[in-house]
Design a protein around this nucleic acid. Structure first.
Lengths: 143, 143
DNA sequence: ACTATATAGGATAAAAAACATCCTATATAT
DNA sequence: ATATATAGGATGTTTTTTATCCTATATAGT
């Protein structure tokens, strides 16, 4: 019942990029170094973030990643689900076939409620909010 | 971000036992068959439920498991956490050392909020409530 | 055009977690 | 005694996660 490391890395990556000026191309090396993410692994994660439309990947010399959306348009839920897939706490919700009674099963109803709450909380957390009071990234204006 | 199968099996086991008269010894074979749980695996899970004080294990002929608490005293959170460990959505919460800034990091604050909500929802789901309208178990009075 | 730089993306591998079973020991009812 | 049933350590299998390797490709600068 944990977020995967890939999910955490994706959050760190977007958080770092959100704190920079928009449309700036930031190299993978910089992000991986500053946010402590394995460089090649970040490459894989970036592909998923790109597919989901959050970043644009720029190849070649001076290449890197460019954030396409404003921090207020990106939620923690978006980022986590773009690399880990939609959050389901319970398999029966995802595979209704495996539990023919799911629609009337009170256990699953609880899991579904929990899932919706969780997703709602993460959906409410936009990156502009996360940047405020955030000390997990080193800022240019912080020496 | 899923409950493990062991967690789901534990829930099914307790749910099945909760629907029977109290203090009744129910064989592992019966539970595993009725709730579709691998028999030996249920043995392992039962050990954890026993350590957590929810059931008593009775060895020998006519042995099996006996539920020690009333369904209204057992929550979904209790059962899940007794086999899967305390729920943490984010590693930094669990290993504060790995993130020295966790107490002031807004990302972690969101995960912590989500975690508390999730646990609250599961804590509110007692097995007596779950039994109502539950069609995931076959009842004696249902032919 | 050539070179250096930087990412893409398929393949692969290593590690960890989850899932499950085997087997000998032990406890209990009859 | 015997049959029954679980305990618990060891082991095995599968899946997921994490990560890296390597060749291809794209771009900036000269």
């Amino acid at each position: 019942m944990r977020i995967t490391r890939a999910g955490e890395y994706a959050v760190r990556c977007v958080l770092y990029m959100s704190d920079r000026e928009k449309n700036l191309i930031i190299s993978r090396k910089e992000i991986s170094k500053e946010m402590d993410i394995p460089d090649q692994f970040l490459g894989k994660i970036a592909q998923q973030l790109a597919r989901a439309g959050f970043i644009e990947i720029v190849q070649g010399a001076k290449g890197g990643y460019r954030l396409l959306k404003n921090p207020e348009e990106i939620t923690l839920l978006d980022v986590v689900e773009s690399v880990s897939g939609e959050i389901f706490l319970n398999d029966c919700i995802m595979n209704p076939d495996s539990c023919t009674k799911s629609s009337v099963c009170s256990v699953h109803a609880v899991w579904e409620e929990a899932r919706e709450q969780l997703r709602k909380t993460l959906r409410n957390a936009t990156f502009d909010k996360l940047l405020k009071d955030n000390s997990c990234i080193r800022r240019a204006d912080q020496a």
